[in-house]
Amino acid sequence: MIGRSRSRREISLRTREALHGYGFILIWIVGFLLFTLLPLSETFHYSLNQVSVTATHINLDFVEWANYSRALFTDPNFVELLVGYTVETLVSVPIVLIFAMSIALFLNLKFRLKGLFRVIFFLPIVITSGPVIKELTAQGAASAPGIANIPAVVDFLAQLPRALRSPVEYLLTSFILILWFSGVQILIYLASLQKIDRSIYEAAAIDGASSWEIFWKIILPSLSMATLLNAIYTIVTLSHFSENRVIRYIYNQTYDVRGGIGYASAMAFIYFGVMIILLAAVYFFLMQWAKRESK
């Protein structure tokens, strides 16, 4: 009897706790419904329609999947832009990760003027914005100076098979631009590095491990979580960047007479789908790698 009443009180306590918890996140749930789910489903609705907007009304004309098939099969630009985006993202992510990891490893060492270098290396966090990057690129400040114009390089590029040429070309012209997207990632790596217990290094060094071995056996495995976080962050930042060509194209189509809101919405959903596939692929790849590392 006593046991039962206690368990009942426990249940009511848990309900109370849950209710209070919901109370704290209620504001977010309302926001999610109003500002994310509702517009998302409306955009999906638009993507199935031919939409025309007048001063007072939005006229919908149901066309099923016509907008999607137009984007994928008729539009001469969209698929090409999507492929370009995929290639550029897949080229950029490893570079950002490797670069951010090396910088973090350097900044984790002890040396003079470290504060100064840290301040310089985190600058991109503050100034990487669409218009600024656009101005810098326009002035030629974004590519490795002149490399893509050296005759030998031009010849080399011409020799490459077509599938390889565009990633390499992208790499040469936008290398520095890619580095500009590494600020937050360096921060995250650095924080994980500082969490590794110093005594592990010392123990390994006493056992005769070289710094090379320490890197592969101790540091890299303990950075796997940060790597995953950084990979996701990098893909999302690159995909949302306002100067991204796919985004620009979708944006321009929104206000285009031949395009319109319905068509732009369909493209936005295709783009979102490609983004999720990319994220999932990178996620599973890194999970496999982390599993192998931790064995």
Partner: peptide
Amino acid sequence: TFIIPPQNTVIPQ
């Protein structure tokens, strides 16, 4: 909410 590209929600808003 973090990964949804802005253009998927921006027009109805």
